[in-house]
Design a protein around this nucleic acid. Sequence first.
DNA 1: TATTGTTATACTCTATAACTATA
DNA 2: TATAGTTATAGAGTATAACAATA
Lengths: 158, 158
Amino acid sequence: MNGRTPRGPRPSSIARVAGINYLDLGEHLGYALRRAQVASFDAFHRATAGLGITPPRFTALVILQANPGISQSTLGEVLGTARSGAMLLTDWLEARGFASRRHRADDGRAWGLYLTGRGERLIGRLRQRVRDYDRRFAARLGKREREQLLRFLERLSA
Amino acid sequence: MNGRTPRGPRPSSIARVAGINYLDLGEHLGYALRRAQVASFDAFHRATAGLGITPPRFTALVILQANPGISQSTLGEVLGTARSGAMLLTDWLEARGFASRRHRADDGRAWGLYLTGRGERLIGRLRQRVRDYDRRFAARLGKREREQLLRFLERLSA
DNA sequence: TATTGTTATACTCTATAACTATA
DNA sequence: TATAGTTATAGAGTATAACAATA
């Protein structure tokens, strides 16, 4: 313990409590998805401990890396949040030197968003960590099962 | 439109944005789980529209039905939240006449929580609605696929 | 008129910590 | 001492609405 409390939302696992009757809750896809997602978030949190990186921030870094010059509105659309949220997220990245806003030649209203060198290095390290955590988290499934699961989830999300 | 804004958290879907490069984000189990969970939450929200029922509240109702006399602390444990959160949730249920607190004979500190008749009727209707929504949501999967998915998720959550 | 970014505001959820009463 | 419930407080996340600048 170092006394510092992490800032982001704390993932609290949802363990099965002994002696409790859950009825058919385990048959509900929504409940099962929620439990698995919390477990995944918990693993993500441990994998990125101390960096202040949350899943949306990680996603934003990946999207900025692959789509240099993207606007805040589009970033918000990708993340599924309102413009104002995308703006706060961009503020966070910029304040830490991971991303920069540049004026666009073609549209005076919008910013173009770019990773800085520091941001590139961060996402490089993060990619590795997140890939590792994802593999460890999925270790209870076989390779084929993991692929199957991904396809199922993709079909539900489309 | 009736002008009333729903109270609970609004599920905002995470659609794929055309023209955006997502790199390998789709291969991340955490990302896929999050997207599916948001889609599921969105369907749940529509299924229970107007009732103010959120997934944790639904879970609490099921747990109270199947475990009459459960304490607030244990309910919080089941939900994966702190005691204070379980208390606010119980307040919400009690204020609407869905649940009641009764003193315990064996332990003067703890409440025993029980569904009221009104709560029983609510959970009866909700069960039906939630089961329907869950089936519709999973309609993109076959029966066997749905079962497989549930087993995969269960293994990841254990 | 519509859109981008911004700002202010409000609301939900949830955690922490301190307190009380019981055990 | 430890636990159940309570209360107060704080923080993160995110939505809405209004506004200025630009299209």
